[in-house]
């Protein structure tokens, strides 16, 4: 099963990170990441961080989704 929720790196020690989702903290290996940093959001799979979230891309996606929402609301009465 894949884990949809990204976690935030709050501490790094020898390739192990403490990662946090809404106050729940656990360990994850950072071995599969290049240059992980505290404060970055990562996708975690089976105890390993496998990817950093691309903040710029996330903003872009949300912008597109919200624009679609705003546009749809303007063009028709809410139902």
């Amino acid at each position: 099963m894949c884990l949809a929720i990204p976690s935030k790196i709050v501490k790094i020690e020898n390739n192990m990170g403490i990662i946090d989702v809404d106050g729940v903290q656990r360990q994850a290996s950072l071995l599969l990441l290049e240059d992980p940093k505290v404060g970055e959001y990562v996708i975690v799979h089976a105890g390993f961080a496998i990817k950093k979230i691309d903040e710029e891309a996330a903003m872009e996606t949300l912008k597109v989704l919200r624009e679609a929402l705003a546009f749809a609301e303007k063009s028709e009465p809410a139902g």
Partner: peptide, 18 residues
Amino acid sequence: NAYTRAVSFKGNEKAIRI
């Protein structure tokens, strides 16, 4: 790609190498 915040064209090259 509708999941750009996590997926890139090349993927995670370090993970692929390992």
